[in-house]
Design a protein around this nucleic acid. Structure first.
Lengths: 166, 166
DNA sequence: TGTATATAGTGCGATATCGCACTAGTGATG
DNA sequence: CATCACTAGTGCGATATCGCACTATATACA
């Protein structure tokens, strides 16, 4: 991602919203704004928003295969493959062989990787705090709605790609 | 985006969620899953999820400048610039001069562009319907939460980029 | 009205994303 | 234990994204 550009329309022009008022479009808009915000926030750490998210996943798993990661973040395996290669080049990630499957391997954050993640986390924290504070009592509700929506979308995706062949 | 890959983990592995339970991370996950889903859904129309979203914005505005569009979708102007160029190459978009500002111009969907958007819309519709149906009575609440979150994030972004120089 | 500063948009180059085709290893079936 | 369909992962090439530097126009202000 790494755009971290300037300005966003705080006051949404109502006229444009006509015909655009649906949850999936909402997700798109929110996500773009959020990514931009976090890109800017964590920029100094050398990570962008997507990378920070991925490092977070890695940090909370100790050990995940590229395919699992790809499913998790709904990305093509080739994309994950190049992410891992990049992170490895930075010395932030290590591959260890997967005892359970010889074709596969397990990806883990190195100490440097955890440190980079922590640094980005320091920058991310106040942003999350402010957003949380602005949401006020709605935080939990928002979280629940997002989780529910994710489950729905994930289920739909899974069904679509499973058994394409009848 | 245009990934439209395979499979997503329908059942979220609870263990991984530790430390990842925050609204902004939620947004990232939902958005990735949604984009993947819509990429696949509208693929046959020749548009990807992002393009469909942008065409939707264009369709509901008749006439927007690149900068306005960039603010709307929280993208760098260079990115919007290449989007517009691409759409123009496809014959889906037309530029007309902006009477209000000589540096600028107004971007509009052509008839072919509206048609492409409609075609993608046909493919998108059932997906939105199903998601809506699965959300049930929560749709409105979800929509409201997403809008609220968007306003918050947009406000934060705007403040950050306004008056960087004191 | 002349000069300074800010904004709209683009060309270009570096890097990222991801589809296709491929290799290597797995697991089921006879 | 041979065969065969299937899955994990990667190299490569086409295209997309976006920062930097630049041009053209607009606005502020003396």
């Amino acid at each position: 991602m790494a755009h971290a550009h300037n300005k966003a329309s705080g006051a949404r022009s109502a006229a444009i919203n006509e015909g655009l008022a649906n949850v999936l479009f909402d997700v798109w808009l929110v996500s773009r704004a959020t990514t931009a915000l976090i890109d800017t926030a964590v920029q100094a750490s050398g990570l962008d928003a997507d990378e920070f998210a991925i490092y977070s996943v890695l940090a909370s798993t100790d050990g995940i295969t590229p395919t699992e990661l790809a499913r998790w973040m709904a990305a093509p395996t080739t994309t994950v493959s190049s992410y891992v290669k990049r992170f490895e080049r930075r010395g932030h990630v290590r591959r260890t062989s997967n005892p359970a499957d010889g074709r596969s391997h397990v990806v883990t954050l190195t100490a440097a990787g955890r440190q980079a993640h922590a640094a980005a986390g320091e920058l991310f924290s106040p942003v999350l705090d402010e957003a949380t504070q602005l949401l006020g009592t709605d935080v939990d509700e928002t979280h629940v709605r997002l989780q529910a929506l994710h489950d729905i979308v994930a289920t739909m995706s899974t069904r679509d790609s499973d058994s394409s062949q009848g």
